[in-house]
Design a protein around this nucleic acid. Structure first.
Lengths: 64, 64
DNA sequence: ATCAAATGTAATATATATATTACATAATGC
DNA sequence: GCATTATGTAATATATATATTACATTTGAT
């Protein structure tokens, strides 16, 4: 998943990113694993914190 | 909001778009009004149905 | 091999997105 | 004018994202 790559590129742990976006480590971990369906606001906070856009992290060009 | 513009450009009512994405008219109406925080999956379905991307509909370049 | 940090994961609780039903108003065509 | 379609909105119910707490496993450095 692109999220994990962007996070480690920034040198952040799940814990650190979670704190920066106001979520928990567990939530971040599950989102990275694709195990849940985060809210738009959380996606936006994550993207801004990692200096990415929604499309960068959460959009797949291919599939239909 | 950009969502409403994209929807009317496609000639769809809230009801029609809601059916296409598997949601209700009320949900679509509230999202258009910015009154709730939709899930990523719903945002993706909406974007694909309207031939747009996440950034097109849900990303603001400015703010910070 | 040991220690600490990072991550996985499970149980339960809480907040909130979303559905359902219903009624009201606005807009548009006839 | 009337009928119909689109939209706003409220009450309640349900599903699920997210938090909390806790313990296990992995990874990396020393």
């Amino acid at each position: 998943m692109k999220l994990k790559l962007a996070r480690v590129e920034k040198g952040l742990s799940q814990q650190q990113l979670a704190e920066l976006v106001g979520a928990t480590r567990q939530t971040l971990g599950l989102i990275e694993k694709g195990k849940y369906n985060p809210s738009l606001n959380l996606c936006i906070k994550i993207a801004k914190t990692l200096d990415k856009t929604l499309n960068d992290l959460f959009w797949e060009d291919d599939e239909n």
